[in-house]
């Protein structure tokens, strides 16, 4: 890439003969460069497939059963009960009597935190995007965009700190609840983390709408709000939806901040003030110490497969919905 740029610069400066020889060099280099770019493109697919195969392969023994030799010729087989796995809230992988591998509470934990964070982040993010793209002056816009990008650059562990050190006492003091590490805390932190993504993607979508749309809307007698609501939003639907779904993806995949802010407690929540535990946090907290080859170890990989499934469903819906919207707008 760099080489090409250099070549490019030289060709404009050099005289005709130089130019010709560079032209030849460029022609010869072209297949190489095309090949490199080709590999770059395909490597993305290769990585996704490789990761999926690895995670799936590591999770497989949990389903098919793991045999350990306890005495000569005596083999004990441990196997995951899939019904228990999907329907039981009991996650007690290291029990000394009978381990239980139910992830229902973890799924509910992940979904409740993500849902609550999206509830906060979408209005906040869309509002900010509308302000930045439609109302802010050039200078304000540039400053805001830089600040919002800065917000996205804050490491998640720092967000976790904020949740523990600032939000935790704040929530206990304001609500009188015994402990402030809960869905509310994690949801707010996660919302603040996904706002930058929602803002930057939806702002791009809004700015991509041609000015003629805005002018036409205003010329028809709509005020600014009506123009945004009835013209811009429908026109930028695809991008806005992509923004929201990216936000959801962030919420489901986030690990460190939710590990710190949810209270990390296996629990079926009944209110916003209940501590919960998420799928990602469980993997992060337990994979490091699970004995390799153990049922616990392979089950954690199976949770990884479940997360994969979530991500796949979200992306697929995003694609289908966006495609549907596009087809409609083409008619």
């Amino acid at each position: 890439m760099l080489l090409l740029l250099l070549l490019d610069r030289n060709t404009t400066k050099g005289n005709l003969s130089f130019r010709r020889s560079f032209q030849q060099l460029q022609d010869r280099l072209e297949p190489v460069v095309v090949g490199v770019i080709y590999i770059c493109g395909w490597s993305a697919i290769l990585f996704v497939i490789a990761i999926f195969v690895f995670v799936f392969k590591e999770s497989l023994p949990a389903i098919t059963g793991i045999g350990t030799e306890i005495a000569a010729g005596e083999i004990e087989v441990e196997q995951l009960d899939l019904v228990e796995f999907t329907t039981s809230p009991r996650w007690i992988p290291e029990s000394s009597k009978k381990p239980a591998f139910g992830i229902l509470a973890l799924i509910v934990g992940t979904l409740s935190v993500t849902f609550f964070s999206i509830l906060l982040a979408v209005p906040l993010g869309l509002g900010a995007a509308v302000y930045v793209s439609e109302f802010a002056g050039n200078k304000t816009r540039e400053i805001l965009k830089i600040l919002i990008e800065l917000l996205a650059a804050i490491p998640s562990v720092v967000w976790g700190f904020i949740g523990i050190v600032i939000m935790n006492p704040l929530i206990t003091n304001l609500s009188g609840e015994a402990v402030g590490l809960n869905i509310l805390n994690a949801g707010i932190v996660l919302a603040l983390m996904s706002v930058p993504i929602i803002v930057s993607v939806s702002e791009d979508a809004l700015r991509a709408v041609p000015d003629s749309f805005r002018e036409a809307g205003l010329a028809m007698g709509a005020n600014r709000w009506e123009m945004i609501y009835k013209v811009l939003f429908p026109a930028a639907k695809n991008g806005l939806l992509a923004a929201v779904l990216l936000g959801i993806g962030r919420g489901i995949g986030e690990t460190m901040a939710v590990l710190m802010c949810t209270g990390h407690s296996v629990n079926m929540p009944t209110s916003l003030f209940d501590p919960v535990r998420t799928l990602t946090a469980t993997i992060a907290a337990e994979l490091g110490e699970a004995v390799r080859g153990d049922l616990h170890y392979h089950t954690l990989f199976l949770i990884g497969v479940v997360l994969f499934a979530f991500a796949f469903i979200i992306n697929l819906t995003a694609d289908l919905v966006v495609k549907g919207v596009r087809d409609q707008s083409n008619v």
């Binding site: 809230p89 407690s265 629990n267």
Partner: peptide, 8 residues
């Protein structure tokens, strides 16, 4: 086993 809902 432990009762579920402990903060771990």
């Amino acid at each position: 086993d432990f009762k579920l809902g402990t903060i771990d």
